[in-house]
Design a protein around this nucleic acid. Structure first.
Lengths: 334, 334
DNA sequence: CTGAAAGCGCTTACAG
DNA sequence: CTGAAAGCGCTTACAG
C-alpha cells in the first residue's frame, strides 16, 4: 500500500503539502505541484478511503435504500439505481446499496456508523415508517416518492395527482364521457404507494367534477388473470369509449388482447396510459400517455442530496415534476 | 457522535475491553459484558466505519461492478444486484455499486483506495479488459460470467456450452431433425458476451454431430423488427419441426405471433427456450426450457468472494452450474 | 508558499 | 479477565 507519506518522500515535501495539493485547499507552487503529481503517478497513489473518512467525517458515499422485492420483476428499479449511481459519481460520490431486508435498521446502521454522508429512499410510501429512522439520523435524506405529510426532508416525485387529473381532462376534452380505468393491482395500493393512490384519487375526483363516468377495474397481480380481467373489461365495455390504463403489465398485454377482440384503436376504443418511458420503449407502446422518467427524478434526488450534504442549512424543497402528455393519437374520440 | 470511549466510560472499563467485547476476540466476564452491552444500547453506539476500516484494513464492503446500460431494459440485472446485496449482508458485508461508466478505472479507484475488500464483476466477457485492472489490484475479485482463458480469479457461471448442447440433444431425442434456432441479436455477440457465443457454438456443433439441421435466425435488437423476424422465420419454416429460442424479447413476443399465424404448440411447431426464470415467470412463458437462475449464480459469487477475502490462499474455483431442462411438453414432436 | 504535530475513532500486540 | 499505549493514513489548525 502506498501512502501519502510515500508520495511526500518521493516528492521531497511534507505530507501536509501533498494533502493540500490533493484537495486544492491552499496554493501550491507550480514546481512542487508538478513533483507531487509526478510522484502520485509513479507510485499509483490513491488516498485511503477509511483514513480520509475518519479525518474528515465524510465518506463521500451516498446510501441508496432500495425496496426489497426479490420475487418482483423490477425493471424500472434498475433504472433508478443506475441513474443514481451515475449522477452520484459525477458529483464525487459513491453509492452504497442498502436493501430493505433489514428494514429501517439498515438506515440506522449505515448512518450511525458514518458509513454514508446521506441517504436516498426509493419508493417512499404515503406513510413510511422508514422516515422515523431517517429523522433520528445525523445525516440528511432525500425521498424519492412524496409522503402524505410534509416532512423535514427533500422530496422528489412526479406529480401523480396532477397526472391523474390531466389524463381524465384529456379524455374529457377529446369528447369521452364514459371511461374504463384499469388500475394497479390491490397489492400495490395496500403497500401504500403514493403513485397508485394519487393517480386513482385524482382521476376519480376529476371525473366527478367533469361529469365523466369512470368505471374502475382493478388489475390483477397474476399475469394470466391480469390479461383476462382486461379482456373481460373490454368485451363488456358497453358504451364506454376510452380505456385509461395505469398498469404496466396490462399495457404490455393490451396489444394482443385488442387484436384477439378485433378492436381498433382509437376507432373502437381510445387508449390512454401512464407508464415509465423505459417500459414504453421496451414494448414499443404506441399509446398517448404520460411517461414517467426515472432518469429525471433519480438524478434530481442525487443533486438534492449532494447539495444538502454540502449545505445542510438550505431550505427543504419538495419537487413535484409536471406530468406531460405525449399525444400519439390513440385517445381521439371517433 | 458517540464513540467507543463513551461506551468505555459509561461501562467503567477500558476502550480495549469494549473493542474485544464487540469483536468477541477474547473472553470477557459475564458482568463486564453486560455493562458494556447496556452502555451500547443506552448510547446507541455503532462503531465508526472509517476508523474501523483504517485500523483493520478491512472495510467489509464488496464492490459490485455493473455494466453501464442506461438505455437498456435490465430486469435481470436488478435480480443479480439484489441477490448480491442480500447475500453480502447475510455474510456481514455491504455492497458498493460501481457502474461501468468509468470503465476499468472504477475498479482501480475502489480497490486502490481500500474502499472495498473485493470486487464482483457482472457480465464478464469472453475477453474482458476489466480483468487487467482487477489483476493489478490488491483485493480479490470474483467473475460472474466465464472468460475464455483461465484466470486467477474465482468464476461462477451457468454452463452455457452444456446448455446449448442439451437443448439440441433434447430436440434430437424428441425426434426433431430440422430446427430453427433464433439467437440473440448481433449486438450481444459483438459485445463478446460468453453466454451468447457458447449457447450458439455448442448448439451448432452438437447439431452437426447428431446430423440435425440447424437453421440460424439472428434476432433483431429493435422490438418491432425482432417480432417481424420471428414471424417471418415461422411462416417460412418449411419442414422445420422445432423452434429453439435464446432471446428473451422474442420469447415474450412469441405467444402473440403464434396466435397470429394460427400455429399450435407443439402440434404445428415445437418450442424450446433458454431464459432467466424471473423473465419466464413475469411473462408466464409456458415452454420447455432451461431456466437460468440469477439468485443461484449471484449468491454463489458472493460466497466465493467472502471466502477469498477471509482465506486468500484457497485455490481458485471455476463453478459452472449444470443447466437443467424443465419439460413442459412444448418440445414434443407430433 | 510550506512544515511539524495533533487528532479523527478504532484495533491489537504487549503486559499484567 | 483487563488496561495502557502505539499505530492505522489521512486532514487541518497553528506557526512561520
Amino acid at each position: 500500500m502506498t501512502t501519502i507519506s510515500d508520495v511526500a518522500r518521493v516528492a521531497g515535501v511534507s505530507r501536509s503539502t501533498v494533502s493540500h495539493a490533493l484537495s486544492g485547499k491552499r496554493p501550491i507552487s507550480e514546481a512542487t505541484r508538478n513533483r507531487i503529481n509526478e510522484a502520485i503517478a509513479d507510485l499509483g497513489y490513491t488516498a485511503n478511503a477509511g483514513a480520509r473518512a475518519l479525518a474528515t467525517s465524510k465518506s463521500s458515499i451516498m446510501g441508496l435504500i432500495v425496496p426489497f422485492t426479490p420475487e418482483e420483476f423490477a425493471p424500472s428499479t434498475m433504472q433508478y439505481v443506475l441513474v443514481v449511481a451515475e449522477t452520484a459519481r459525477s458529483l464525487g460520490y459513491d453509492v452504497l446499496l442498502v436493501t430493505e431486508e433489514e428494514g429501517a435498521a439498515g438506515i440506522t446502521r449505515v448512518t450511525q456508523s458514518n458509513l454514508v454522508d446521506g441517504v436516498i429512499l426509493l419508493d417512499v410510501k404515503r406513510h413510511d415508517d422508514r422516515l422515523a429512522a431517517l429523522a433520528s439520523a445525523n445525516q440528511p435524506g432525500v425521498l424519492l416518492g412524496a409522503p402524505e405529510e410534509s416532512v423535514s426532508f427533500d422530496v422528489v416525485d412526479l406529480d401523480f395527482a396532477e397526472a391523474g387529473k390531466r389524463l381524465v381532462e384529456h379524455l374529457f376534452e377529446e369528447g369521452h364521457r364514459e371511461i374504463i380505468f384499469l388500475t394497479l393491482p390491490d397489492s400495490i395500493f395496500e403497500m401504500d404507494l403514493g403513485y397508485a393512490w394519487r393517480v386513482r384519487d385524482a382521476a376519480i375526483s376529476t371525473a366527478a367534477e367533469l361529469g365523466v363516468e369512470l368505471r374502475i377495474v382493478v388489475g390483477d397481480s397474476d399475469p394470466q388473470r391480469r390479461a383476462e380481467t382486461l379482456s373481460a373489461a373490454l368485451e363488456n365495455r358497453g358504451t364506454a369509449t376510452a380505456l385509461l390504463v395505469h398498469n404496466d403489465g396490462a399495457l404490455a398485454d393490451l396489444q394482443q388482447i385488442l387484436q384477439e377482440l378485433s378492436l381498433r384503436v382509437p376507432d373502437d376504443i381510445a387508449v390512454l396510459g401512464i407508464f415509465p418511458e423505459q417500459f414504453g420503449r421496451m414494448f414499443s407502446l404506441p399509446y398517448t400517455a404520460i411517461e414517467t422518467s426515472a432518469a429525471l427524478v433519480a438524478s434530481q434526488a442525487v443533486r438534492l442530496l449532494a447539495n444538502r450534504i454540502e449545505r445542510p442549512e438550505s431550505p427543504f424543497v419538495r419537487t413535484l415534476l409536471e406530468p406531460i402528455i405525449t399525444d400519439r393519437g390513440t385517445s381521439r374520440k371517433v
